[in-house]
Design a protein around this nucleic acid. Structure first.
Lengths: 260, 260
DNA sequence: CGCCCTGTTGAATCTGGTCAAACTAAGTGG
DNA sequence: CCACTTAGTTTGACCAGATTCAACAGGGCG
């Protein structure tokens, strides 16, 4: 039954897995080599988009999901009067576009932050894939569930955290995502501008700068332009005030908090 | 193929559909009477929770999804130091808990805002249901896709809108959801407190009050405590600055906006 | 009937935004 | 290769919207 995850050991090798984010969808299902072969057939086109180019537009017909191979992408929505809100930054190994399933139209716009290579998987192929390997459906549910959780944490950040907490949270979240993909957790470069970071976190560009300098003065980080090093994950963590995970015990005593 | 929605006319009657939110999952699939019968078998328990009682806790094992029959529920997450962020208000006909699928634990806490009646559908039953009616999977994807879109709009609100815009957006969104379920779009009562509204919108309780009074002075609404009437949907809409839908043309000229 | 919770209003404070300007890095074209 | 342009980043001064603190009013429930 698809709803119960098959938890065999994955057998496709790490290189192939890193090569294309589509594997992320199937890896946790424990595909055998045959399935992995099968998978390869469904990756139709590889596409390169340059910095600033659009991968898909808001409202455009939902035709493909995209798996990022290298580079990075931002997704954003906007008010009718033109204010943008960046809803996510996406790095290699991540899958894009799935949430368009309901309306058959992309519900955000995706723009490359740097030269980016993606796999395009057409919807038809994807459906065929799900027919061949039923637990793909379950895997899709898991990924969307993960995205919902991520978005809820972002809502907590936007609704309740102050500027310092937002920046610290942002840096640590990035760090964890890089670490998960075997990149350095303490040293990486930001493919997005200060403006983008501010936009994403609900802060002004200037505030982002000021707080980064403050972090630097306090020895928490070292940053020069896009290059950044996290020198004190510990202290950053205590600044960030991560969401409560709830595994140890019930929620802490309710403090019907106002924001901030 | 499940990914392609079956778009037959629904055949189960409206009363049954309103009776239990589970139908919402199946309605758009165009179930025939036999399937509808089948569905009934999977609704195991009905449960009544009183105001302030918890439906499920954060981190608790994912055992059931809940369909709201009557009343209303708030869901929220929190920082480790006890600040809460309400992530959603839920009204009759809506389904709760689906996003726990990834981690097999509820990723938020759900509390009744008033005396509320829900259907508990155990995961096992749900899986059995999906086995019997394959497009249930597809329907789940659609619902989660819808939730993601909703959350993104909330991120836009929290990141870029000022207090007036937030309140106007909130009232209109509620109005639309009520209208969709054949309740009045212009007159309803808020089951949540001013504090809850403020928490949800990233504002202080006092700010919510002040702006509601301002709206009332300007004749946009009439409100006395929990009872509210929207007198000028038009003008509320222009205050709200709804998200750009993207159907007519490309995104408006980029204005790399700071927040507020 | 009185207490308590929710909602409302006022005044002071402050975080973070806006505006302006300088500076740096990276292109770009002559 | 260099002057020039452009985009991105940083810092300072000032300001405004929203929060905080506080006091009070009114309903509803025990």
């Amino acid at each position: 039954m698809a709803l119960q995850a098959v938890q065999k050991k994955p057998e496709c090798d790490a290189i192939a897995c890193q090569d294309c984010g589509l594997y992320q969808l199937c890896l946790p299902m424990g595909l055998n080599s045959a399935d992995t072969m099968l998978l390869d057939r469904y990756v139709k086109r590889k596409r390169i988009v340059k910095r600033g180019q659009i991968l898909y537009r808001l409202g455009e017909e939902f035709t493909c999901v995209y798996a990022i191979r290298s580079g990075s992408v931002k997704t954003y929505i906007s008010t009718a009067d033109g204010r943008l809100q960046i809803t996510g930054f996406h790095i290699p190994g991540e899958l894009l576009g799935l949430s368009a399933i309901d309306e058959k139209r992309y519900n955000c716009e995706a723009m490359a932050l740097e030269t980016t290579s993606v796999c395009e998987i057409s919807l038809n192929c994807f459906e065929e894939l799900a027919r061949q390997i039923p637990s793909v459906h379950y895997q899709m549910l898991r990924m969307m569930s993960k995205e919902i959780k991520h978005n809820q944490n972002l809502m907590l950040l936007l609704g309740k955290k102050n500027a310092e907490e937002r920046l610290a949270t942002f840096l640590l979240t990035l760090s964890k995502r890089f670490a998960m993909r075997n990149y350095s957790a303490t040293q990486f470069n930001l493919s997005m501008s200060r403006g983008d970071i501010g936009n994403y976190l609900g802060l002004a560009e200037e505030t982002v700068c000021r707080i980064l300098t403050r972090f630097q003065e306090e020895g928490l980080i070292a940053s020069e332009r896009r290059r950044i090093a996290l020198n004190d994950l510990e202290r950053l963590g205590s600044i960030a005030h991560e969401p409560y995970s709830g595994v140890t015990r019930a929620l802490p005593r309710v403090r019907v908090s106002h924001s901030r």
